[in-house]
Design a protein around this nucleic acid. Structure first.
Length: 1072
RNA sequence: GGGCCUGUAGCUCAGACGGUUAGAGCACUGUGCUGAUAACGCAGGGGUCCGUGGUUCGAGUCCACGCAGGCCCA
């Protein structure tokens, strides 16, 4: 690694090398099309192969590992992808500039339901039955091709926005290499006993015999469905005639009951009804549910009911081995309807199953795949469950366990195909036993740096704490097959998990190289089981989320190849996706890594909020408010789009997006920077010594700018290190504003004069800015760097993205100067406001400005800025309000922080008393260092000078403005001399306007024609040099412009009381 | 129904630790300045800091309970 460049070294480099007299920069037009500029930069990068070199040239440097969360290329990339890619891009760029080697391997997600649905749509198929008819081989072939449908769009967009990622080296989840790595992982989990077959509750159509996907489910909701609504009395064990009252709209699930759930913070009551039975239910529900005439006996929280055992309603078959039939606490319990006591049937509800798993409850699967009660449910065996509802209700009634029966109207899902009411039904599927690792998942999450921070213990942490086993299996076609083979011998439970293609070849005894590891081909592989059966693959496929979660391993085809690469890149320093990935990729990465390697998969993660339309509504095709990224790029450019994304608000917040919002940042930020850059090149090219750095600048404005610049470098670097994108970008915009509207404006004269120190300072600022901005706006920063650096220092890296990140030079930081300048800016603002209030133009010089600061240090700082203030405010003297007591009014202000802390409720009293006292006398005592003691209501308060702020306000004869304790006043009386000087400035301004109107070049010299009046005569004798120098006048001709035929232009205006007409001609210099 | 987040000017957003008069940009109006700027300066209108209650001498800021919106999960 070469040593990192510091500002000082830049100076040395420049002075030793490049500063020859004939150096020139490319002329930069004042206005620019950023989209055109960006296209040309793209060509430059291509021709110099900069992206590849940004990785190659850092080989051997420390590694910074970025993981690309794989998108699916079967849909068009949208603006939300631009958001994620913009945030993904900036840290690898930053780290590369810091000397790190950052491999940016791309990735594509190619499996899963979205792909299948798209192919179904293309083929006009609906449902699995038709897919099977069409043929799985052909269907999957279509999927394989469909996956790349929008690849070109993705590649083009990625390049256009300058997201540097190696797409030609991307991992692809459907390849045999990738699939084999997944198999290897599953085999590891299998060997550790972490794969098992268990129940999963799915919306299920008993007629079609198939689970429905969530989108199928959404097709079939029907409002106004009428179901039974029964209130069931569960007999409490060990209490006499006491019942837990539960409510259900699905009586057929009662034989599957395993527990009752309460909310532990919900209030419950125990009542005696008219029959004498003791009933437990939620306090809030008692009145609505119970027949009148009950008697309240007791109140308790749900937590007090937890653990209470009850008699199971039914018992079928062998006695259940596990503990069940007791009260548990669950957070899904509410008192919106029912009784606040929820019947839990793990086989028939997702909540039920989850809470059941958490408590180790049994799953009573009493219903078969046809939706009929199984044989062991003897009273109702073979009956379709919905038809059994009345019989079950009647049975409960007969046993005295039905409190009452009603009907209930609600929205219920039906099969969109056959209109059969769906049931929620637990089917057998493959699980990964993640819940065994809950504590490790939580503990390892603690070390991850989440942005925003609250995700760690909030959304993600909560998710981990409530971890349930990962339902891995899917009954579909286009995904990674679960590599488990089962013997088909009757009653056999023999299974093997296959960890790779070679292993599969061995097992079946033939070379399977070239076998497509998808359905249906992989299902054709069988061999003989030890028990004589045929080994056949289980039908399920993997959840696609497992594909992406396994990418740290599978992107390298590990462990079959690339051991070294895997070792280096197995843990990411940085990943970034939108917030919906907390339960998606963020979780699957974390889970796979924890189970396999017991360490987090990533160290830092930015979790982005979503993109909303300009009006804050959701962006969606149906609303027609989707923004096309290409259009925004074409109109405003990728830099502007990126900059908006970074600066619009905290990354975790949802952000509004529109072309208008991008246009605004382009105008305010990019244009300002561009114009400053353009300005620099104009004057640097006019001044031969432009890039000769001065040894050291003594100019306070230069030193201030360098101080601010180095503070900025420090601040931005720290923000990058903390993954705080807003803090890494917004301060740059503020600096550019200061640079353009303060530093450049105040120094115009020096640039005009070709002042080497000013030019060097500005160039240094622009070059440093280009580097600080490179990760965020890669195009504009490249354009500036190419011109300002490479034009004069050809030995520097030939792209800003190959250059080194600037280091803050602490010695250049002058906090006193920075504070003083900030105050000077404030005073200037207030001074102008004061002038405004008295209608005194800035052009008119005034005698005096009087400033009141809050502290003595601030006064010292402002004294250093005296020249600046005099010139900015166009006054002759700077004074401070603590001088000349006769000129000012005095007010003593008790400071709330000091006195509030000291005396608490005494503060308002002190404030009231002080207001009644003689302010001048009071101020005098504090000025002498004395304390003041006031008494009220028997309390005595001692106040020191430090506890008050003495405010002095100029008396009559001043115009003033104040803010936040600061006050600026200017004298309003005009002497003849001041007035004359004002006229001189007015004259200059008019001449300048005339020069402009006649299209003179900036450095053209002129001959000025003036009428000989006493006023102009006097004015010229007092301010002749000033007028000549400002207007580049070589000769004054005392002749009325209107009568002089040589005048090229003339103008008439008022100068005080007098009306004058002036003219000018260009002064031709021979021998030029 | 549960979890997390957000709520400050018409719009986009800042507001460490509770403390002097809640700020900036955009937009609007007026005005001034200008030989870098489709700029810039100044002024004006525009705020129940989502609501209610609490803690405190003092709350946009802390606490509680709500309301609205977003996301995720049911």
């Amino acid at each position: 690694m070469t040593p990192t460049q510091t500002p000082t070294q830049t100076q040395n480099d420049a002075s030793s090398g490049a500063g020859t007299l004939d150096t020139r920069y490319q002329p930069v037009p004042a206005s620019v099309s950023f989209p055109d500029l960006e296209e040309s930069i793209l060509k430059l990068w291509q021709s110099r192969d900069v992206f590849k070199r940004s990785m190659e040239e850092r080989a051997g440097g420390p590694e910074y590992v970025f993981f690309e969360g794989p998108p699916t290329a079967n849909g068009r990339p949208g603006i939300h992808h631009v958001l994620a890619r913009a945030f993904k891009d900036m840290f690898p760029r930053y780290k590369t500039m810091q000397g790190y080697h950052v491999l940016r391997k791309g990735g594509w997600d190619t499996h899963g339901l979205p792909v299948e649905l798209e192919v179904e749509r293309q083929l006009g198929l609906t449902g699995k039955e038709q897919i099977e008819e069409y043929g799985v081989a052909g269907f999957n072939q279509m999927c394989k091709e469909s996956v790349w449908e929008y690849l070109n769009d993705w590649e083009a967009l990625t390049e256009r926005m300058a997201f540097w990622v190696s797409l030609d080296d991307a991992y692809v989840t459907m390849t045999n290499e990738y699939v084999q790595s997944l198999w290897w992982i599953l085999r590891q989990l299998w060997d550790k006993g972490l794969l098992y077959e268990g129940y999963k509750v799915v919306p299920y159509c008993p007629r079609c015999g198939t689970p429905l996907s969530s989108h199928e489910l959404s097709l079939g909701y029907q409002e106004g469905t009428v179901d039974p609504s029964i209130f069931v009395k569960f007999v409490v064990k060990g209490e006499d005639n006491a019942f837990l009252m539960a409510w259900t709209t699905t009586p057929w699930t009662l034989p599957g009951n395993a527990a009752l759930a309460v909310g532990d913070k919900i209030d419950y009551v125990k009542v005696r009804d008219r029959s004498g039975a003791l009933l437990y239910l939620a306090k809030e529900r008692a009145e609505a549910v119970l027949e009148p005439g009950y008697q309240l006996l007791e109140k308790m929280k749900g937590a007090a009911l937890v653990g209470k055992e009850y008699e199971p309603l039914f018992q079928f078959g062998a006695a259940p081995p596990e503990r069940y039939a007791y009260v548990i606490a669950a957070d899904f319990v509410s008192t919106a309807d029912g009784t606040g006591i929820v019947h839990v049937a793990p086989a028939f509800g997702a909540d039920d199953l989850a809470v059941g798993q958490a408590h180790g409850l049994p799953v009573f699967q009493t219903v078969d795949a046809a939706g009929q009660f199984k044989p062991e449910v003897t009273p109702w065996a073979g009956i379709f469950v919905k038809n059994a509802d009345p019989q079950i209700t009647a049975d409960l009634d007969a046993r005295g366990q039905l409190y009452k029966e009603e009907t209930y109207e609600h929205t219920y899902p039906f099969c969109w195909r056959c209109d059969t009411p769906l049931i929620y039904w637990a089917k057998q599927t493959w699980y990964i036993r993640t819940s065994d690792f809950k504590e490790r998942l939580v503990a390892l999450n603690d070390s991850i740096n989440w942005v925003p921070d609250h995700i760690r213990s909030g959304r993600f942490g909560r998710w981990l704490e409530n971890n349930v086993d990962w339902a891995l299996g899917r009954d579909r076609y286009w995904a990674t097959p679960i590599p488990i083979w089962k013997s088909d011998a009757p009653g056999s439970q023999y299974m093997e998990c296959v960890g790779g293609l070679d292993e599969l070849s061995q097992k079946c005894g033939r070379d399977l190289q070239g076998l497509d590891l998808h359905r249906p081909y992989v299902d054709e592989i069988t061999w003989t089981a030890p028990d004589g059966g045929a080994m056949r693959r289980v039908p399920e496929l993997c959840d696609v989320w497992f594909d992406s979660g396994a990418m740290p391993v599978a992107q390298w085809h590990y462990p079959f190849a690339n051991q070294a690469e895997f070792d280096t890149y197995q843990q990411a320093d940085y990943i970034c996706e939108a917030v919906d990935q907390t339960r998606g990729w963020f979780y699957t990465l974390h889970a796979v890594s924890t189970l396999l390697f017991d360490r987090p998969a990533f160290k830092n993660v930015i979790c982005l909020g979503h993109i909303l339309a300009e009006d804050g509504s959701k962006m969606s095709k149906s609303r027609g408010n989707v923004v096309n990224p290409w259009q925004v790029f074409a109109e405003h450019g990728a830099d502007a789009t990126r900059w908006y994304m970074y600066t619009a608000g905290p990354p975790g917040n949802a952000r509004r997006f529109s072309g208008n919002l991008v246009a605004e940042v382009k105008r305010r930020f990019l244009n300002t920077l561009w114009n400053t850059y353009s300005f620099f090149t104009v004057y640097a090219n006019l001044a031969p010594a432009a890039d000769r750095p001065p040894a050291e600048t003594n100019n306070d404005l230069d030193r201030w700018l360098l101080s601010e610049l180095n503070r900025l470098v420090r601040e931005v670097t720290a923000a990058y290190e903390a993954y705080d994108v807003t803090a890494a970008t917004r301060p740059i915009a503020e600096f550019v504003d200061d640079l353009s509207n303060w530093y450049v404006r105040l120094n115009r004269r020096r640039f005009w004069d070709g002042d080497a120190e000013a030019l060097f300072t500005l160039r240094h600022a622009l070059v440093t800015l280009a580097k600080l901005l490179a990760p965020a706006v890669p195009f504009l920063s490249e354009a500036i760097y190419q011109n300002l650096v490479l034009s004069v220092e050809p030995d520097q890296p030939d792209s800003v993205h190959l250059s080194r990140w600037p280091q803050a030079d602490a010695s250049a930081i002058d906090t006193e100067l920075s504070a003083a300048m900030a105050l000077a800016q404030k005073v200037t603002t207030l001074g102008r406001a004061a002038r405004e209030s008295a209608a005194l133009k800035v052009r008119q010089p005034l005698q005096q400005v009087v400033v009141r600061t809050r502290t003595a240090d601030e006064r010292t700082g402002l004294e250093r800025m005296e020249q600046l203030l005099l010139s900015e405010l166009n006054v002759k003297e700077l004074n401070f309000a603590d001088e000349g007591a006769e000129l000012v009014e005095v007010e003593v202000f008790p400071l709330p922080r000091q006195l509030g802390q000291k005396y608490g409720r005494g503060y308002p009293v002190i404030r009231r008393l002080f207001a009644q006292m003689d302010q001048t006398e009071l101020a005098g005592r504090f000025a002498e260092g004395k304390t003041v003691t006031v008494e009220a209501d028997g309390n005595s308060y001692e106040i020191e000078a430090a506890d008050v702020e003495v405010r002095r306000t100029p008396r009559a004869g001043f115009a003033l403005a104040q803010d936040g304790g600061y006050l600026v006043a200017v004298t309003t009386n005009l002497t003849p001399e001041l007035e004359q000087e004002g006229h001189a400035r007015e004259l200059v301004r008019r001449v300048q306007q005339l020069r402009k109107d006649t299209n003179l070049e900036i450095n053209d010299r002129i001959r000025l024609l003036l009428p000989q009046t006493p006023q102009l005569d006097g004015l010229l004798s007092a301010h002749r040099d000033y007028v000549l120098a400002e207007t580049l006048t070589l000769e004054i001709v005392w002749s009325p412009a209107t009568e002089n035929p040589t005048a090229e232009a003339c103008a008439t205006f008022s100068l005080g009381e007098e009306k004058v007409t002036i003219g000018l001609t260009k002064f031709e210099i021979s021998n030029q």
